[in-house]
Design a protein around this nucleic acid. Sequence first.
DNA 1: CGGCCCTTGTACCGAACGGTACAAGGCAGT
DNA 2: ACTGCCTTGTACCGTTCGGTACAAGGGCCG
Lengths: 195, 195
Amino acid sequence: MSRTATDRVDALPALAEVFREHGHAGASLSRISAATGLGKGSLYNFFPGGKDEMMAAVLADIADWFEAAIFSALELSDDPARAIAAMIRDVDTYFNSGGRVCLVGTLGLSASRDPFTKSIRLYFERWIAALATCIAKGSVPGNEASTLAERTVVGIQGAIVLARALDDENTFRRILRHHEKTMLDAIAAHRSRHS
Amino acid sequence: MSRTATDRVDALPALAEVFREHGHAGASLSRISAATGLGKGSLYNFFPGGKDEMMAAVLADIADWFEAAIFSALELSDDPARAIAAMIRDVDTYFNSGGRVCLVGTLGLSASRDPFTKSIRLYFERWIAALATCIAKGSVPGNEASTLAERTVVGIQGAIVLARALDDENTFRRILRHHEKTMLDAIAAHRSRHS
DNA sequence: CGGCCCTTGTACCGAACGGTACAAGGCAGT
DNA sequence: ACTGCCTTGTACCGTTCGGTACAAGGGCCG
């Protein structure tokens, strides 16, 4: 039983990579089997619900990771500027400077998103909300903070698209840096006005 | 012969919609057949190269449409502010306020993009270049114009992702309006400095 | 050491896949 | 009206699809 859970969790990263690269429709069981090193028997032992359950597990895993590594840090830190800089750095690493696709974003674009619309919406709402509260802690008014947060998340998603299309990591990092600066400037402006 | 070309062209919009919704992998021949109203016979008569040739034809059609409707207008207009506003309006219509996906962008995200990397790259390079020259005509320095153009295209792509994920047209339009204002402000700032 | 249960490779299922072959049909030119 | 060609529906190809069944392993506990 403990082994079961362990192996199932161990398979998630490879599983996620297949879904990222090939999408829900293009991720065939043979590809999944090859990527994870698990035969069909093990796959359906761990995920009786088939591909949809695998995708759901991957989405849950991603949500957990972002919650632990990004969202909570944004909300809990008492140094907003520092937290934002950390998020930008983590995002750059996670998405491999645009070389790695955002599974949640791409899934939302496809027609096979139907069973996962809730998870997809929550992922983005959570991200924007966490970032907005972080910015707001830097003395930035709530509505302006929300706007900045939304633009940043939009910019990250768009940067992934463009960086992939142009096959250029610098594009991704440039966009990331721009949004980082915009947020930090907003905080600095309101903080200086405070003092 | 003339009929052949006509029908082939007529099938492109429906074809594009299938690829948009289901991606390259998910666009099965049966779905394509249903969407276009063409049997396999006709399909392989018009596109002997199969799905890849269909996708190539769709990409060429999209490139032609953008060239005629958006890019050339950006470059040829002698009223940059007006041209930018027109582009924003056309983009909002074309992407149905985020309800419709950008086929070129999504194709670039998938692993099946390989035969089309050139077309994908050209599409975005062309878009950014055309928008940059338009902005530059508003007395904005070249490098700043390029930066603004890139950010706008990134914002559009990101807005599609987010609007789809949140299922909210207002998100898309809000982002679009922001970039429109940013570009127009830049032009106004440099123009006023000129006079 | 024996029994047990979880794990897993393999064979197999019907369906759908992308693609081909081709005969019947319709339309144009004479 | 005849001929020739383009168009197209349909049957069919081998392959792969997602998913199931199950028997052979393999480690753990008594």
